[in-house]
Design a protein around this nucleic acid. Structure first.
Lengths: 203, 203
DNA sequence: CACGTTACGGAGCGATGTTCCGCTTTGCAA
DNA sequence: TTGCAAAGCGGAACATCGCTCCGTAACGTG
């Protein structure tokens, strides 16, 4: 589904190119797990046994590298959406379950939440991947929950996806802070119409 | 450490010490406004007309500097709590208004949200200041709203303070993402009891 | 096997955080 | 007023990190 054309005009890649690319993604995967996604680029290059130049030619930005490392897991997360919708007792429960799954995914990659930060204009590759793959899923879950009448609040999928991302962003294991709980609270809020509070604040 | 006592044993500070400290905080205030709280330390030192050594002796960490710059505003935010509680039509409305004020405060300092990130163990100076000054305020607002029956959800003040902080953290002006809206949704969620959803997710 | 093309490696540049130490300023006292 | 020790200052220097650049090595085709 991702991977459109297998061989559009196959410019026949050199053997070392293939080999290095695998080595880099492999190393990055290991390094990210061990030191977080903010690990120095040099470290990844060293772990892969390639030079900086090679790494940068293959993955010009850190986000590109992260895409390569996490694309598979993101796809899995996306694909879980329809399945949950089909098996859950109600659309809202499915929504809740999916969002929790999303939280778990982000949470295990220490620091991945930054996806939503930084450059809004250029839209980093990873940011874009999240939008492409996850937004439609969340969108349909939300629609279903709205149709079933469980969700009544006016909220756009993008807002929700990003808000949850922000909440998880820097989660370190803190006994006093349970992201899942907060996320559940947020989703619970969707079940209520919101009065005209929006104007309530000062100034 | 927060230095409550004016003169515990007044070791009589040198004049230049006083002068430099003022100059640094002043400069930092200007630089932070102009370039965000992540501005290079050198820039602040230059703007203050002092050397790096001087700056670091006065403020060993960036957080210490931020405390000096923002303490006043944080105090104002804290003091607004009781006032709002007294003047708002209901405790929940006061809670909502105060949280929005908190959001506005964080939002105007581009990047200040990082307070909650980083070292949980040592607790950065700024993090600690937020806890000391704002947590009690939010706590009392929340209690009041719970007593009035408007808030029924089980949530601790710390969770809420931090969640909102995370939501605002990197807010850049994005037409597709309105933090205030999301925060309102979150608070709305507090008005409902939460079913046993917490367990709903897979695995 | 030779040669042109492609890719590689890592030194090097600029930016930033942080430390360290010789020199200056300050305040007290003679 | 002047001398002096201590306190404080300045900024060079070191360490890291992101990123670029180009001489050199590897590849694969004829």
């Amino acid at each position: 589904m991702t991977d459109p054309t297998p061989e559009p005009a196959a410019p026949r890649r050199r053997a070392d190119v293939e080999r290095n690319e695998r080595a880099i993604v492999d190393a990055a995967s290991r390094v990210f797990s061990a030191s977080g996604v903010d690990a120095p680029v040099r470290e990844v290059a060293a772990a892969a046994g390639v030079g900086m130049g090679t790494l940068y030619r293959h993955f010009p930005t850190r986000a590109d590298l992260m895409v390569a490392v996490y694309r598979h897991q993101i796809d899995e997360c996306a694909e879980a959406g329809p399945a949950l919708l089909a098996s859950a007792p109600s659309p809202f429960v499915a929504l809740l379950a999916w969002v929790h799954r999303y939280v778990d995914f982000l949470g295990t990659k220490h620091g991945l939440g930054n996806v939503w930060q930084g450059d809004a204009p250029g839209l980093t590759a990873l940011h874009q991947l999240f939008l492409d793959r996850l937004l439609p899923v969340l969108s349909s879950l939300l629609d279903a929950a709205r149709e079933s009448g469980e969700v009544v609040a006016d909220v756009r999928p993008y807002e929700l996806l990003r808000a949850v991302g922000d909440l998880v962003a820097w989660t370190v294991h803190d006994p006093d802070y349970d992201v899942r709980h907060i996320v559940t609270l947020l989703l619970t809020g969707l079940r209520q119409e919101q009065p005209d509070w929006e104007q309530t604040d000062a100034d």
